[in-house]
Design a protein around this nucleic acid. Structure first.
Lengths: 198, 198
DNA sequence: GTCTATAAAAGGATAGAC
DNA sequence: GTCTATCCTTTTATAGAC
């Protein structure tokens, strides 16, 4: 390789991720619509125009964060063994969901709050991924009901109820607080198990 | 009373509420930060400047909607008789919460999503009201635990879990859908009862 | 009470120099 | 790849006529 003269401030390998991190933090804190491209740029130490080397526009930045988050969620879930009783699978789901979400509260917040700021085509993509994830839980509930292990009158409604309950943890959980992650997982496992038990 | 000449477009008795309704609808649909005063005015058939006869600024409009909503919630809850077993009181809370929230999904949405768009002093007021409401449920859970009726390891965590589960209904419930309000109330009563049962 | 007009600031995005 | 400079639009809020 010939020694190339470095142009003024050429850091492309790390600038992209830093922009995404800044956008993530600011979107989560203030909301997509309330954050300007100038604020994101300032957070990274850039001028606003430089952001457009990394994203075609602000909307694409939001969509990219949300899609990658949902992809990660589904990929990590599908990497887990799906065997066992419905009881075991349900407990696994609850622990996975809590663990995954508490590790990235900002992405969780954005993925829920900023749905309405997506363009219709972007929204459709995210909505589909969200539905795939919900179906994973509903399959478990159906298995439990069909094997007589669970008493669940409406698997769809119960799916949404459980996910709402679990995702809500991110609104109050704080690392270093009164309860640790594994304690929270234990307590929610108990509640969910009892709620669906036959 | 002397006959006063009506100035151009004087409709103050109804304009105030109409502005609030328009703001409510638009804030819920697009988010506080994404809605302009011009859009609110256009919805009511006014020019933007006229709004400032009814609110000192945009922030006060948001706060007013949220505070009135929380006041209504607490007032209606406190108007109900608080007697009976913890079991009865819990069932009453679940039915009340679902009924109240499904009657005003837009306000519920705003009260949750727009907290971060409140100034710190306004936020403190709303947060206090929210906490008062949560305490109403926690009192019931404590009563049930103390009388041996409930098996609740952590009343605070269970309070937040139940409220998150119930409030989540507003994200999917639609009037005229597969389930009616009273069916939803029945199903969630069952789940909550089982989840806290001894 | 509402209008028109405007002030003053901030927004997303692009062009061209380096 | 980043900067400066700028375009053009939109924003909140106010002033003064009617």
């Amino acid at each position: 390789m010939s020694a190339m003269a470095r142009t003024q401030g050429s850091h492309s390998e790390i600038t992209g991720p830093r922009i995404r991190e800044a956008a993530l933090r600011l979107f989560a804190e203030r909301g997509y619509a309330a954050v300007s491209m100038r604020q994101i740029a300032a957070e990274v130490g850039l001028q606003a125009g430089a952001l457009y080397n990394y994203t075609p526009d602000k909307q694409a930045l939001l969509f990219s964060l949300m899609r990658d988050h949902m992809d990660d969620l589904l990929t990590e879930w599908r990497a887990r063994p799906a065997a066992g009783t419905a009881q075991n699978r349900l407990e696994d789901f609850v622990r996975f969901h809590i663990g995954f979400h508490l590790e990235r509260p900002e992405l969780v917040f954005i993925a829920y709050m900023e749905l309405r700021n997506l363009t219709p085509d972007h929204f459709a993509v995210i909505e589909r991924l969200r539905r795939d994830y919900e179906n994973a839980l509903e399959d478990i509930l159906r298995q439990g009901r069909d094997t007589g292990l669970f008493d669940v009158a409406d698997t769809k409604l119960t799916t949404l109820a459980v996910i709402a309950m679990l995702t809500g943890i991110t609104t109050w959980y704080r690392p270093g607080g009164r309860l640790g992650v594994s304690q929270v997982q234990d307590l929610y496992c108990d509640m969910v198990r009892k709620a669906v038990a036959a």
